[in-house]
Design a binder for these strands. Sequence first.
RNA 1: GGGCCCGUAGCUCAGUGGUUAGAGCAGGGGACUCAUAAUCCCUUGGUCGUGUGUUCGAAUCACACCGGGCCUACCA
Length: 714
Amino acid sequence: MAAPHDRRILVTSALPYANGHIHLGHLVEYVQTDVFVRFQKLRGHRAIYLCADDTHGTAIMIRARGEGRSERALVAAMREAHLADFDGFQIAFDHYGSTDSDANRRLCDMIWSRLRARGLVVSRDVRQLYDPEAGVFLADRFVKGCCPKCGASDQYGDSCEACGAAYTPADLVEPRSTLSGARPEVRSAEHLFVTLEPLHDFLATWTRSSGAIDPRIANYLAGHFLGEPLRDWDVSRPAPYFGFEIPDAPGHFWYVWFDAPVGYIAATEEWCAARGETLATWWGRGAPNEPPAEIHHFIGKDITYFHTLFWPAMLEAAGLALPTRVRIHGFLTVNGQKMSKSRGTFLLARTYLEHLDPGMLRYFYAAKLSGGIDDVDLDLDEFAAKVNADLVGKVVNLASRTARWLEATGLSAAYPDDGGLFARAAADGAEIAAAYEDCDTARAMRTIMLAADRANAYVDAEQPWKLAKAGPASAARLQDVASVALNLFRQIAVYLAPVLPAFAAQAGALVGGPIRSWDESQRPLTGSPVAPFQPLMKRVEKPHLDALLAAARAEAEREAAARPPTPVPAPAPPPASHSGGPTMTTPPTTGPDSAEPLAAEPLAPECTIDDFTKVDLRVARIVTAEEVPEAKKLLKLTVSFGGDATRTVFAGIKGFHAPESLVGRLVVVVANLAPRQMKFGTSEGMVVAASGAGAPGVYLLSPDSGALPGMRLR
RNA sequence: GGGCCCGUAGCUCAGUGGUUAGAGCAGGGGACUCAUAAUCCCUUGGUCGUGUGUUCGAAUCACACCGGGCCUACCA
């Protein structure tokens, strides 16, 4: 290890695929990585945390097609969602790129030409199933048919779930494309391969002796891949493919797994460009006066061989720095089982954020992760018990039971005799730091909680509440006791800061200011003012967990309902009895409102007041309302903003509101919406209405009586 | 079928050759009342999966078996 403050540490998490939202399983890795990076920064090292969206490949292409938009539109939308989720969980990337970037294209090109120059690229024809209707080659999972061994129907192209037989898609009986239903044909196409066998010795040595990977993994690789000649790696896909076209092989695109890890470097380059640094500082192999940077990859066990064989092979061939360490973790289970949509345990990041504090999950993961590849189980009862006992009962309690006595006086001017408690916990810092360094956060958390236990015992023994009642004679002693307790509290907050950044900030606001350095755990504070105590964390209660699971289940059901590949028929118009207006369909509510509508449609990402004011909402009066006979859902309305300002608006409320009942009533209109040419005329605005899960219908909004057309909503 | 990991108190785990095996949570009893029914003290609870070895000494090492998990499969 380099001198303590001389380390340059580049850290990555695996790139999330732009085909889906972030869930709690992903977050095991991002939390683990973020904790590691925050720890390194707190220790004063130069650490950067880089990640990116993984955007290319067939799955994205197919999904974009299905949604009737471009791949880039899909990818851009998913990026926003990913970033909002990460932000919610306090995952602090130094840069978050995309594999669909200019930097990535250039770097892929660079690495590719170096592979070419070393003669590692070979070309060969591959016979693959082709969907003549969709016009694409089919990956194994896009083909279904009957198992050639046992005849089971509806099996995927690689293996049979019924009898376990393995085969190739071409072996399937009565194969069909899951994209179009067409019968695939076998076609031959040229593919480009990276031949890895020339790097066999290098990989055998590197996996075994570089220290980058756990010996157990090295053994697995040795047995599984390195015990025989390495197979060539197929890195190209014929058009059409969403990705980068290979410059010296027109019509061929780099396979998504080729350009994905290069995204680590591309993100670094973008980060460097923004700060005037050079890429070689991080991915170069070092110089006499500049040793190479440390590179730490955090990944899940499912992508082990990409990161321990292909990736180092690419880096070696390209003359770039090799990973210092590949950290492999297991999967997440919930209540002891795989996350399951039908059980309601498929928990999306944003669903969690709507119900619970992200810090609690960060702590729970930290308390569970010990650096190994075992799966992590999120048992919700255990989660609640652990978070409540440790964070609320022990740590937060320390401040909440003593801070009030120091609001007036601040901390004692000299650190009082505490029987060696602070010094002991300060000495524990070395062990805690070693555990963090090792990604054994479970050990770190255990050690920290022991300090919290000792601190609470101290408070009990000193009985500051009695000192408080004893009056001025005991004031100095009271201040001393509380000063010790708050110092021990802040010391713990420093140790927990990598895991609980928001909590650490609040602790700093209470006493001592922002926590900037690990060293702050080594010296007690004296004389500092103490702010009024604010609640730092709420206990997890059963209803919170029940609501979370209910929301997850509702989400899964909503998604399942939206999934059928055949176009969903337009909803049939409801019975005419619904058309009398909003009052008829809304029974008075007595008990608590259902959680269903919100659960089914989680809140959108946060926006600013500026975002909101871009939308000009006005009160308007409906002047005319008429049926559009050919339209299934639309009514044609003329609305007035007062005076002679009127607009023609098509509103999707047919069947829920009789036209004649609408004339004269006040509604809310998006007044500055861009005009939209529709089949039946131009719509010059949008009438605001509510709809969602839990009840059918579309509900118009009405202002309180007295509002005038043209008034703005704000 | 093969490989790897795990099996310690009701639960989650620490302890990996050396005094009567530990912690947190849960259970029981008590104290306190400052604190988010939080905290503190005492306490119940384990033939350390089973068996056989190695050793002066085994939860810890070896072998076999039983049970669980992960990975991978007519190739390690």
